[in-house]
Design a protein around this nucleic acid. Structure first.
Length: 571
DNA sequence: GCCGTTTTCGGCCCGACTGTTTTCAGTCG
């Protein structure tokens, strides 16, 4: 799929145009198209071929031509021309916080600075302070920005950021005078990765609260601290912004700082159509505030229902406001069907895992250790698996009044598309997950066919972590998810939403596509220890971002219904 | 660049903060 490549080029065009000082609205158009391309769940080539691409709002005639040009020639002439005019190193400069397109253009035109190295030199020599609009403080800010870009590893996974933010909230709430402290930003939307942590507070003496906050033990560097806002950096270069908001505006500010930007733009447009004005202080009719203390009020005054943060991405939540899904909740999950034990590479015994699942209130669970080819993960050969089956069945009997314990396996899909055990052995298991763990870099058609084939196997119930991505570590495989979804429907195979925060696989837009196609999702943790069973929360958040309801998720079924289903053969 | 029965031209979301300035530009969210 060329979707990502195209999105990158459109973003790059926008960056280059900004440096060139092009019209902001043209630039915004390119960024919008880039975002659309990123979020497509189908191959852009297919969508172009059958005319659906042209129907997507935001993609006009010009973008369509450019996309077509890229698919035909591998290049976009608009992009090539810009690249010729603007030195390549300048693109990296756009990543420096505090350095915007205007300043980059100034540095380039006045001092011939075209990359970070030259900028650093110019700062050290004191030369750039002589430029118009440049002072000691601005230079210092840029200098720190360069340090940040060089050290920074990019975006922070949800599973790292959320516990840190929750701890900060606990500490902030202990400061005298703090009435409220809430997470905002992409973290509140439970995006899979986040840029920084945004926290809003309501307090009697804002300045004092912010001063105390900047002295927290976690704080490594204070970037700014005023009467309404403080910015700091904590471990791993994570930036935390805390704002103090008056009570009458708290809802408006929470809405505003939760975003997404695209969602907020839509809301403000609706406000304008109603002759109102929406900003972070409230919703205003002329000069009079008509909503602001809470979020619900704002949505209602805009003739919208309350929209859950996970949906606020401008992915149809405004157009479909009258038929928003009743999003799945953690309490809907009745069992976890993917976990490892000491039999392969897990840290806890089967019995420990069973007790932990009982503690979590589950009605059923499945133990799924690795198959023989996953040698590094201690995969079980046929003999060891048969012993393991017997051992787990014994435990299942022991705990049957508290929980239904199934014995399954996470069976490798080998590079040639064969499964790691023969059908005879698969038939002895209650539940089979098939997963790709090797040859992840196969070309799209090969890796797709490999998975399509095993889905025809009557014992394969679930495809584990279908794209194989590891957030911030490994790209998704080239697998064609749309085809996998279609095959899942045709073969009555379920697809996993792997809840490990390193995976979150399938991701939100894929889940939404699966839902539209009527394919059932299984939200599992792939836990390798008792603690990791709680990763289920990240799966739930991602499911909500994918618009999933209880009915779309197989492991929301009661024990009775689930057991009946799993006893039947597929199809 | 995109869009549209109020428009095929003329709009396109909004405000704070910072640092540099003497009234505002640049950056950010």
């Amino acid at each position: 799929m060329k979707n990502e490549e195209l999105a990158d080029i459109f973003n790059e065009i926008a960056d280059l145009m900004e440096i060139q000082g092009e019209q902001p609205f043209r630039i915004a158009s390119y960024r919008k198209v880039a975002r659309i391309l990123e979020e497509l769940t189908e191959d852009v080539e297919t969508l172009l071929a059958d005319g659906r691409l042209a129907k997507i709002p935001g993609i006009g005639k010009g973008s369509l031509e450019r996309i077509e040009e890229y698919l035909k020639t591998g290049k976009i002439s608009t992009h090539q021309e810009l690249v010729k005019k603007v030195p390549k190193g300048l693109l990296k400069l756009t990543k420096v916080p505090g350095l915007g397109p205007k300043t980059i253009a100034l540095l380039w035109k006045e001092m011939d600075i075209t990359d970070i190295g030259q900028l650093r030199k110019a700062i050290n020599s004191g030369m750039i302070e002589k430029l118009p609009g440049m002072g000691a403080k601005k230079v210092e800010k840029i200098s720190k920005g360069i340090d940040f870009v060089i050290r920074s590893s990019g975006r922070i996974p949800l599973g790292i950021a959320l516990p840190i933010a929750e701890e900060l909230i606990t500490q902030i709430k202990k400061i005298a005078g703090v009435k409220k402290a809430e997470i905002a930003g992409s973290l509140r939307r439970r995006a899979e990765t986040i840029g920084d942590i945004d926290i809003l507070t309501e307090a009697s003496d804002g300045q004092k609260v912010l001063e105390k906050f900047t002295k927290f033990r976690q704080v490594r560097e204070v970037l700014a601290s005023g009467s309404t806002k403080a910015s700091v950096r904590i471990q791993d270069n994570i930036q935390v912004d805390v704002r103090v908001i008056p009570a009458e505006s708290f809802g408006a500010a929470w809405q505003y700082f939760t975003g997404s930007k695209a969602h907020n733009v839509r809301l403000r447009k609706i406000a304008i159509e109603k002759k109102l004005k929406l900003n972070e202080y409230g919703l205003f009719e002329n000069e009079k505030q008509i909503a602001g203390a809470n979020e619900e009020e704002i949505y209602h005054k805009l003739s919208l229902p309350y929209i859950p943060p996970e949906l606020r991405e401008d992915r149809g939540e405004i157009e479909n406001a009258d038929k928003l899904p009743t999003l799945i909740d953690r309490k809907d999950i009745k069992g976890d069907l993917h976990m490892h034990t000491t039999a392969s590479d897990g840290h806890n015994s089967p019995e420990e895992m069973i007790r932990a699942c009982i503690e979590r209130g589950y009605e059923y669970m499945c133990i799924t250790d690795h198959s023989k080819s996953s040698a590094i993960a201690g995969g079980l050969d046929e003999t060891r698996l048969r012993k393991h089956i017997a051992a787990v069945r014994k435990l299942a009997e022991k705990y049957k009044n508290e929980i239904a314990v199934l014995i399954g396996s996470e069976v490798d899909i080998l590079a040639d598309g064969q499964l790691d055990y023969d059908d005879g052995l698969l038939a002895e298991l209650d539940f089979v997950i098939a997963s790709v763990h090797s040859a992840l870099s196969q070309p799209a058609d090969k890796i797709t066919k490999r998975v399509l084939k095993v889905m025809e196997n009557p014992y394969v119930r679930l495809i584990g972590h279908p794209t194989g991505r590891l957030l911030a570590q490994r790209e998704a495989s080239a697998i064609d998810v749309a085809k996998i979804i279609k095959q899942a429907k045709d073969t009555d195979t379920w697809l996993e939403l792997n809840s490990s925060w390193q995976r979150l696989d399938l991701k939100d837009v894929h889940l939404r596509l699966a839902k539209q196609e009527g394919v059932k999702i299984c939200i599992c943790t792939d836990a390798h220890s008792i603690d990791q069973l709680d990763y289920i929360q990240y799966g739930i958040y991602t499911a909500r971002r994918g618009w999933l309801e209880k009915e779309d998720v197989i492991n929301t079924l009661s024990r009775k219904k689930f057991m009946e289903l799993v006893k039947q053969r597929k199809r």
